[in-house]
């Protein structure tokens, strides 16, 4: 028995966790009516402050996220957390274990955690995560924290779409610095060296500060670097204060950026068009015919792609050659 999205939308807006959770599944699974649901919610969104959190494995992101969430929640803010983990490329399944590290958050604290698998195959993790964030925003969450393992391009894009990006590393983890070099640095607004209880954190922090000095030459304002211990709470007050600054600024009014809107439309289209093509070629036998020709040596994958595109847009001038 499937509830109508309409009912779910109303209930989620009124604070039903169950409705919010089901709505997310509905959209994540791309079940019939998902897009209409998003259209209905869109006008009521844009209020929440979205913070992306990434960093190398072992940096203690989940523990940190849960500590931050608890601190913000006690000051009366409503919090949503999206924890992204990779799907298995072999089975399509996933083992989502971030809740293990978020045990401090009890049922009563009003924090909504949703684990999300990358699901991969159809691409567009970024859009799927944006949808989930938007639904939480619609359900009146003030702050939404998205956590990913900062390894794949997909994951980097996910946090990149947030209002602010926090990069978490830890002392001694040589790959902590490596991850920064891998291109996340440019999008991060604040840096956190976690696990300060273990020593060596100050060295790591000054190393990062030095790197920022180099890269931000000539620009106004360098991103701040915080040294914290999610384990014993050191430094979390300062970090949370910085986040409150972001949250208050966002409350002053939602800001739409042209570039973001453009990227989002393209993102939705990419996924939609891919789905459409896959569905069509799978059902009308075109794909099998192309494969057979290539196997027989009478065609090639490039020609096949052109032929399939021509079926959709006969008038289009998309061709493989140079313009």
């Amino acid at each position: 028995m499937e509830e109508m999205p309409r009912q779910l939308i109303d209930a989620a807006r009124q604070g039903s966790e169950r409705a919010l959770a089901r709505l997310i599944s509905h959209v994540e699974d791309r079940r019939p009516g998902w897009k209409d649901a998003m259209k209905a919610m869109y006008p009521h969104t844009g209020r929440a402050c979205v913070i992306g959190i990434t960093g190398s494995p072992g940096a203690g992101k989940s523990t940190l996220v849960s500590e931050i969430a608890l601190r913000l929640a006690t000051s009366g803010l409503t919090i949503g957390i999206v924890a992204v983990d990779p799907s298995s490329p072999f089975s399509g399944g996933a083992l989502l274990g971030d809740r293990v590290r978020m045990r401090g958050i009890s049922a009563a604290s009003g924090v909504f955690i949703r684990s999300m698998a990358t699901r991969g195959v159809l691409g567009g993790l970024c859009q799927a995560a944006k949808d989930v964030v938007r639904i939480m925003d619609f359900a009146r969450k003030d702050v939404i924290l998205i956590e990913t393992v900062g390894v794949g391009q997909d994951e980097i894009e996910v946090v990149g779409a947030a209002d602010h990006v926090m990069l978490v590393t830890f002392p001694g983890g040589g790959d902590g610095i490596q991850a920064i070099k891998a291109g996340v640095m440019e999008i991060a607004d604040l840096f956190v060296v976690n696990k300060a209880d273990r020593g060596g954190a100050d060295e790591t922090a000054s190393e990062i500060a030095a790197m920022l000095e180099l890269s931000s030459e000539g620009q106004a304002g360098k991103p701040p670097v915080f040294t914290v211990s999610a384990l014993n709470g050191d430094g979390l007050t300062d970090l949370t204060a910085a986040l409150r600054g972001y949250i208050n600024r966002k409350k002053a009014g939602p800001v739409l950026e042209q570039a973001h809107v453009r990227r989002e439309i393209l993102g939705i289209l990419e996924r939609e068009v891919t789905c459409l093509i896959r569905e069509r070629v799978a059902s009308n036998g075109n794909m099998e015919a192309c494969i057979a020709r290539i196997m027989a040596g009478t065609s090639d994958p490039y020609t096949a792609a052109d032929e399939i595109i021509a079926l959709f847009a006969p008038a289009s001038r998309i061709k493989g050659g140079m313009p």
Binding site: E17, S87, S88, F90, S91, G92, G93, A94, L95, L96, G97, R99, V100, R101, R103, S106, A107, A108, S115, A117
Partner: peptide
Amino acid sequence: RDEGFEVIYTGLRQTPEQIVS
């Protein structure tokens, strides 16, 4: 997971309320 399900693991020491939530 290897059978294709999305598995969420809670970890140890969960109260029934936490599990339901």
